[in-house]
């Protein structure tokens, strides 16, 4: 069963090897890009999982609920934003964190705000964006994204419905056991 899960990456590796055989230069480029993505992954993903493990065993559910739960109001929204913005790393790094958040009783809209903030308002990336594309570009994008993330969180929560949200919480809890 466990080995079966690795069929997908093995198939991909076979395709890449085939390309390598057909066109050495393209194969080399592909591997160098995969390598840099892999380095990016390694630079944040393993510590994220360790931090999550620590959070899970040390921080009680009640504490998280009081800051980010159903009754957390504006404070919860701002905190979710800041947590997402302080992050580093690709978006898929946010998913396991969001799952633990749900397990610990964080409000659904706050989870969505966290993911939204992570996806596009990360502070380290913002600095880098200003450097490459100019202050105007980066600041304007941020200014449009902040209300957009809030709006999308609200609309998503309304669209998805109570029952589905419960199912998602159950699945997320299962993923972070």
């Amino acid at each position: 069963m466990k080995a079966k899960r690795y069929v997908f990456p093995l198939a991909m590796a076979t395709v890449v090897s085939a390309v390598f055989a057909a066109d050495n230069q393209v194969g080399r480029n592909a591997l160098s890009i995969t390598g840099s993505s892999f380095l990016e992954m390694l630079s944040v993903i393993p510590p994220i999982f360790i931090l999550l493990g620590l959070l899970d065993v040390w921080i009680p559910r009640e504490k998280i609920i009081s800051h980010l739960g159903e009754e957390s109001g504006i404070k919860g929204i701002v905190l979710s934003f800041l947590l997402g913005a302080a992050a580093a790393g690709p978006l898929y790094g946010a998913f396991p964190i969001a799952a633990v958040f749900m397990k610990k009783g964080v409000k659904f809209s706050n989870v969505l705000i966290f993911i939204g903030a992570w996806s596009t308002t990360k502070i380290p990336m913002f600095m880098f964006e200003m450097g490459s594309l100019g202050v105007g570009f980066a600041v304007l994008r941020l200014a449009i994204n902040i209300p957009g993330i809030l709006l999308m969180a609200i609309v998503l929560e309304k669209t998805i419905g109570k029952e589905s949200i419960e199912a998602i919480y159950a699945q997320a809890t299962n993923m972070s056991e």
């Binding site: 198939a11 991909m12 890449v16 390309v19 592909a30």
Partner: peptide, 17 residues
Amino acid sequence: ILPELIAILLFVGLLIA
């Protein structure tokens, strides 16, 4: 999530190349 992650990184490398 490791198996999916490895496959994704290989695929994207190829696509961009």
